[in-house]
Design a protein around this nucleic acid. Structure first.
Length: 816
RNA sequence: GCCGAAGUGGCGGAACGGUAUACGCGGCGGUCUCAAAAACCGCUGGGGGUAAACCCUGUGUGGGUUCGAAUCCCACCUUCGGCACCA
């Protein structure tokens, strides 16, 4: 009779069904056990599950399973980010309703996700496009509105002409300022839109003290928030009582101001432009405006500008300087106006050169000879040409000038941020309607809570026109004012989907709860997320928004903690076999279903973990995956193949050696699991297995140590290859389920080496390797080393100057 | 331009300042077979030497620190990622 071979296509579906029938992975609150909330960023309902999803999820699942075996009550939920432009665009292209399209995708993806054999608790699934879900997204919006964290404002906003909607600043990427979704360069539009006051939390968002996140994300968020300390002070205007506030981080350079610049859109431009310059100014403003509406491809833009005829007055020395407009000054940062200090600012330097303006030095670099400098000097130095501040180090001048301005009431210390408020309005159909009503009598009126959800009408025409499709749905648009019962109109824009994904981790704790977004008691048990995993691309979008959301909810009184996710791990990107990003046009897309079918989910999961460091990503290899498949086949044989009989007994040494590698492997695998080093973890399991393949041909195969080794191998494999481990566990007579077994512990004594290889060096070069007992003394090691003929060859006729001995590692003999 | 990360065999990648290249892929040789595939066993950085012993050399480049450097320091080169008129 032939022994059964490893056959994943039989065992994988079998165990998946059993696990589901047994609700093996359903997590309930249990005050008696430490909880662990393990979360992977929820997938977008784009269609098929691709290998990138597997790369993000399979290692997460392995880690979550490991933590469960370690004794934690682990919650590992999954759901779908189901609203958004791609769904809508795809639906339009296929002539299907977005709802239908999305739900069909979800159905398909559920099946594909199940094929992974992950321990998701499907009873907690959330779909952001379900009315039960977006009702609470709307509820949060109302809370934010009540607490002055949501406001409506007319502002120049980013508009994607392809997606036909506004975007948040975080969704505009790259040098050419393109749409994060479709790549089209965005344009500016002046529109009345809804914003969330994320800037109120700028300083708190810069504090990462309560979370353990990758340095990379911390840096990106810090740069994105862009905090600058400086001074806002007023420039006077010759012949006018008006003042122009300007912001600077270098008040110490104020005596070097030789001009001032307003942004072209600055509100004072019209008033301060003299008649003789009006035509040129108007012309420039038109051009600047058009420039922002066409592609901005030139990186080295000339710093042009035009004089508007007025003069600004420097409040420190009452000097008059010409006032310009130039598009290198942005209306969206600071006050939209600057002092021009060409001696100590690169942009101002270029501008002054171009316009023939003087470039005085007011901060002298060390050893300055009094001559003009060739470029703007940006560092600290000694103040010169600065009146009574001359001779001060610039850092002291900074404080002295600022104090002077504050005393005289012309300026004050101020902090500016690059971060803008979060624009959440979208002029598209497939999103959660913003629950607001506009009444001719009462103005802006929130939809009362008991009228939520504001349902998305199924029968709307959802083609993108640049305005919300809901605007043309009469039944949706017209309503009555909740305050005066008079005729009123609904807000027709929908919410940014990042609003929906800012709180999905909260919803998982309380599936189906209908008295609020979360059941406080259940939330209390699970919160916060202990470990979050997902792609780095969300560093300044989702990961920033959800932190803001948590802090806002805390201040409103909905939550009692400051941060949503304590630890974060960003996996890398899986590339095609050609080492390029996967794309249909390149034809290098890997379909996980193919490999699941031929080699199994366990193999596919394990191979993805084996490729390299998880945060590094790397190229897929269809040859490489076969190595993992072979490994599992050999593991199957190691555990199940009938051993030979031996006349002799295993020696104590053989048994000790087997136990040593068993316990060393437990230690290595545990350490690597903890540190997300899945690639070396699997390498250690392979080494262990290779050892067992050989040991199986010796008498140790009939010892308790062997049974311990096999049992250990299966347990250590369980997080990585859950089906294989369950099958082997059952076949060796283990009690169901392997996934509820405790994680093995290693015995330091059993893992300890008796002998080590002592590396013998002469002048740092390896000359010999000697087997020695652990803990060999220096004298003994020295005698052994000096006695080695290989060493003597290099020490002959030379004097031993020094011997460095690192016990159990190396002995280095220094000769001259 | 600024900030960050990384450069190791033919390939993916291992290496608390202490045996460079673990583990896997590929390649070469062998066992089995009529043959092939699969499986199994052995070898596999480069150069010299006789495929032994042994010697030299080698972790992007050039310096430095150290008994000893892939690892630490300095400079540079390259690649990738982020930001980019942010005053």
């Amino acid at each position: 009779m032939k022994r059964q071979k490893y056959n994943p296509s039989v065992i994988e579906p079998k165990w998946q069904e059993k696990w589901e029938a047994d609700r093996l992975y359903h997590a309930e609150e249990d005050a008696g056990r430490p909880k662990f909330y393990f979360l992977t960023m929820l997938p977008y309902t784009s269609g098929d599950l691709h290998i990138g999803h597997w790369y993000a999820m399979a290692p997460s699942d392995a880690k979550a399973r490991y933590l469960r075996m370690k004794g934690y009550n682990v919650m590992f939920p999954v759901g779908f980010d189901a609203f958004g432009l791609p769904a809508e665009n795809a639906a339009i292209n296929h002539g299907i309703h977005p709802h239908k399209w999305t739900m069909a995708n979800i159905e398909r993806m559920r099946g594909q996700l199940r094929s992974m054999g992950a321990m998701w608790d499907w009873e907690r699934e959330a779909v952001t496009a379900d009315p039960d879900y977006y009702k609470w997204s709307q509820w949060f919006f109302l809370k934010f509105y009540q607490h002055d964290l949501a406001y409506r404002s007319m502002a120049p906003v980013d508009w994607c002409p392809n997606c036909n909607t506004t975007l948040a600043r975080e969704q505009v990427w790259g040098e050419d300022r393109h749409c994060e979704r479709c790549g089209t360069p965005v344009i500016k539009k002046d529109l009345e839109q809804w914003f969330f006051r994320i800037t109120k939390y700028a300083d708190e968002l810069l504090d990462f003290g309560k979370i353990d996140w990758p340095e990379r994300v911390v840096t990106m968020q810090t740069n994105w928030i862009g905090r600058s300390e400086g001074v806002t002070f007023d420039l006077g205007i010759k012949g006018s009582p008006k003042r122009i506030p300007v912001f600077t981080t270098r008040p110490d350079t104020v005596f070097g101001m030789t001009f001032a610049v307003l942004a072209p859109e600055h509100p004072l431009v019209a008033e301060l432009t003299t008649d003789e310059h009006r035509a040129a100014v108007e012309d420039y403003r038109q051009r600047a405006r058009r420039l922002s509406e066409i592609e901005r491809l030139s990186t080295e833009r000339e710093r042009e500008g035009v004089f508007i005829g007025s003069y600004a007055i420097n409040p420190m020395n009452e000097e008059q300087v010409p006032l310009y407009i130039a598009d290198y000054v942005l209306m969206t940062y600071g006050t939209g106006a600057i002092m021009g200090v060409p001696g100590h600012d690169e942009r101002d330097f270029d501008f002054a050169e171009r316009n023939g303006l003087p470039i005085p030095v007011v901060i002298a670099p060390a050893g300055w000879d009094g001559q003009p400098l060739e470029a703007a000097y940006l560092d600290e130095g000694t103040m010169v040409n600065s009146g009574r501040f001359d001779g001060l180090p610039s850092s002291e001048g900074w404080e002295a000038i600022t104090d002077d301005m504050e005393t005289r009431g012309v300026g004050h210390r101020e902090v500016q941020y690059r971060l803008h408020d979060w624009l959440i309005s979208r002029q598209r159909y497939w999103g959660a309607p913003i629950p607001m009503i506009y009444c001719g009598q009462c103005g802006i009126v929130p939809v009362p809570e008991d009228q939520l959800p504001v349902l998305l009408p199924e029968d709307a025409e959802f083609r993108p026109t640049g305005e919300s499709p809901l605007k043309y749905h009469e039944g949706f648009l017209h309503t009555t004012c909740p305050q005066c019962d008079g005729p009123a109109r609904r807000e027709t824009d929908t919410m940014d989907t990042f609003m929906c994904s800012s709180w999905y981790h909260m919803r998982y704790t309380s599936p189906g709860y209908d008295k609020g977004p979360i059941d406080p008691a259940r939330y209390q048990y699970w919160r916060p997320v202990d470990q979050y995993t997902g792609g780095i691309e969300h560093a300044t979008m989702h990961l920033l928004y959800t932190r803001f959301f948590t802090k806002a909810c805390r201040d409103i009184g909905i939550l009692d903690h400051d941060e949503p996710m304590l630890r974060l791990f960003n996996q890398g990107i899986i590339l095609g076999e050609d080492n390029e990003k996967m794309s249909k046009s390149r034809g290098n897309v890997v379909n996980p279903d193919d490999f699941v079918q031929s080699m199994g989910a366990d193999t596919t999961r394990a191979y993805l973990m084996f490729i390299g460091p998880w945060d590094a990503g790397g190229p897929w290899s269809s040859r490489g995956i076969e190595g993992v498949y072979r490994f599992f086949q050999r593991a199957w044989d190691v555990a199940l193949a009938k051993p030979k009989s031996f006349a002799e007994q295993a020696s104590a040494n053989e048994v000790a050696a087997l136990r040593r590698i068993t316990h060393k492997t437990i230690r290595k695998v545990t350490d690597d699991m903890e540190a997300f080093r899945f690639n070396t973890m699997i390498a250690a399991l392979m080494e262990f297995n290779n050892y067992l393949v050989k040991a199986r041909q010796t008498p140790v195969v009939h010892t308790d140590a062997w049974r311990e080794a096999v049992r250990t191998l299966i347990l250590l494999l369980a997080p990585t290859a859950p089906h294989l481990a369950e099958e082997l566990w059952q076949r060796i007579g283990g009690t169901y389920s392997v996934h509820t077994q405790p994680w093995p512990e290693w015995d330091e004594d059993a893992a300890a080496d008796e002998m080590v290889t002592l590396v013998v060096q002469v002048n740092g070069k390896v000359r010999d390797r000697l087997p020695v007992a652990v803990g060999t003394s220096e004298e003994e090691a020295r005698d052994l080393a000096l006695g080695s003929s290989k060493v003597q060859r290099h020490t002959a006729k030379k004097n031993v100057v020094k011997v460095i001995y690192v016990p159990d590692e190396v002995i280095n003999i220094v000769v001259k």
